[in-house]
Design a protein around this nucleic acid. Structure first.
Lengths: 277, 277
DNA sequence: TCAAAAGTGTTGGGAGTACACCCATGA
DNA sequence: TCATGGGTGTACTCCCAACACTTTTGA
């Protein structure tokens, strides 16, 4: 290997042109929780997970939906800064929970040039959103995992229903990592179906050992509402007493009550800010 | 947003030059387990985690150690293919456990140009390695986590000792994600200290809910050896009966025995290949 | 009055913790 | 013989699942 004794000498020899034609993008899975109004005045609203999609108008993906994203400007920003910029543009919010998910990079991912994309998961409280950006829309998520590791995801924004099917193939017997194979996906651009699936699974896993739910909750909430969010993300019914015990030390009861619901009113709780353990 | 009606029109307008000057690299944390010979003939060899480092001879990082890695060729390979190529070069092995870790991208990471680096963790059984590549060396890892979230990592290859100190700062109260701040690091290039820390933590976490250990084990091993590997990775002593119960359904007893150790001989076990649960 | 959700107590089983104990070996 | 690790049984604790039960409300 050649040795260099000074910076000038090194830079003269170093040829980044060799590696040009590479772009990076950032894709963000913005997740929130929405409520479907119930017809029965007694029943509580049904909770749904929802994600934000934007419509592409430019050529290669005309009329396809895709995750909010954008190209990285290598001269000025980090991937995370780029993601925050995109989030600000799409939601007009700055203080959003953001976590790097995975870097996807199939060679033929983008027909224009070689693109490597780092995906992020963002969790937001929909109530804080003031405005909708044009061309963007919230889709309710229905997640059906069948026994043979085939996952159906249905997205619905009221006007349009998007269906996709992905097969999960365990990469190695020794691990929990899956390769995602798209079985059916007509409406989402790029590999965004895979980003959605891996992001949703990440949230589901993290629900049990972190407090990330509270990023999707308003400041005050009833335990029933919180439980519903858990239930819709985990996709299973939880038992009330068990649930209350588990989250007891994460929340604090306030003096406020939620009334007018056709049944016994409930105390409003709040995320316990000053916990130390 | 401008609309395009054909691919030609689109490509004419699309200008990737705007985003050039971006390179990607792959860095791999290759982890294995080594044994330190014991002086006492009765005692079993002490197990250590060890990682592979390579010496840089080129200018900006002369005399620094760094993780095996290389530039991505955007025209021909995916990140994972690139990682496998590097692994083949450094270890001459092809069937290695490989898992994407995280994408690091501080703007000033590399003084030459903007570089985004996706890191991987690879687990190998050192016994399978036939040859050492020049300029590469295995370092035993000592990992000391103090109460105030400051981590000391000491690497030792017999000739040289590398010390580094990193502070972990929780990114958000609601999550388990940390920002890593380098407190002290004189001998490792780039941000490889952070890659090492996050990789080691990843392995530690996954030990409990996956079977990744077996990627670092030879085909036949005693339960005592396996337990030692768990103990060195988790950095705590485990109780024999508990350990045996927990891993009982992951391994199968063979007819082979390990003798000549100055104590009761032990059965050799093997990873149970055909488990279904 | 009553359906619906809020909220609490009690019990049982399964998993992990701790410890006690015996076995087999080679120098 | 004995230090050392191999290997097994058992009792105890704690968490969580499951269920039973009471409370409170608005139409």
């Amino acid at each position: 290997m050649k040795e260099y004794s000074s910076e000038e000498e090194f830079l003269k020899d170093y040829n980044p042109k060799e590696f040009e034609q590479l772009s990076m993008t950032v894709d963000i899975l913005v997740v929130s929780v929405s409520s479907k109004d119930s017809s029965n005045y007694r029943k509580t609203d049904k909770k749904m997970m929802s994600i934000l999609l934007a419509k592409r108008e430019d050529y290669p993906f005309k009329d396809k939906w895709c995750l909010p994203g954008g190209f990285l400007d290598p001269k000025t920003e980090t991937l995370e800064e780029c993601a925050k910029k995109v989030l600000k543009r799409e939601t007009n919010l700055s203080n959003i929970y953001l976590e790097q998910l995975y870097t996807f990079d199939a060679i033929d991912r983008d027909p224009r040039t070689r693109v490597v994309s780092t995906s992020f998961v963002a969790l937001v409280d929909k109530n804080k959103l003031k405005q909708h950006v044009e061309n963007a829309s919230w889709f309710d998520v229905t997640f059906i995992e069948e026994k043979n590791n085939v996952v159906d995801i249905v997205l619905d924004n009221g006007n349009e229903t998007i269906k996709m099917t992905i097969k999960k193939v365990l990469r190695e017997k020794t691990t929990d990592r899956y390769d995602y194979k798209t079985v059916k996906n007509d409406s989402l651009a790029f590999d965004h179906d895979k980003v959605i699936l891996s992001g949703l699974e990440r949230i589901k896993n993290k629900l049990n050992y972190t407090d990330i739910v509270f990023n999707m909750m308003p400041e005050y909430f009833t335990l029933g509402e919180l439980q519903q969010v858990y239930e819709v993300i985990l996709n299973k019914k939880l038992l009330d007493p068990a649930f209350r015990r588990i989250i007891a030390n994460k929340v604090e009861k306030t003096e406020k009550m939620k009334t007018g619901e056709g049944h016994r009113p409930s105390y409003l709780f709040r995320y316990k800010k000053n916990e130390r353990d």
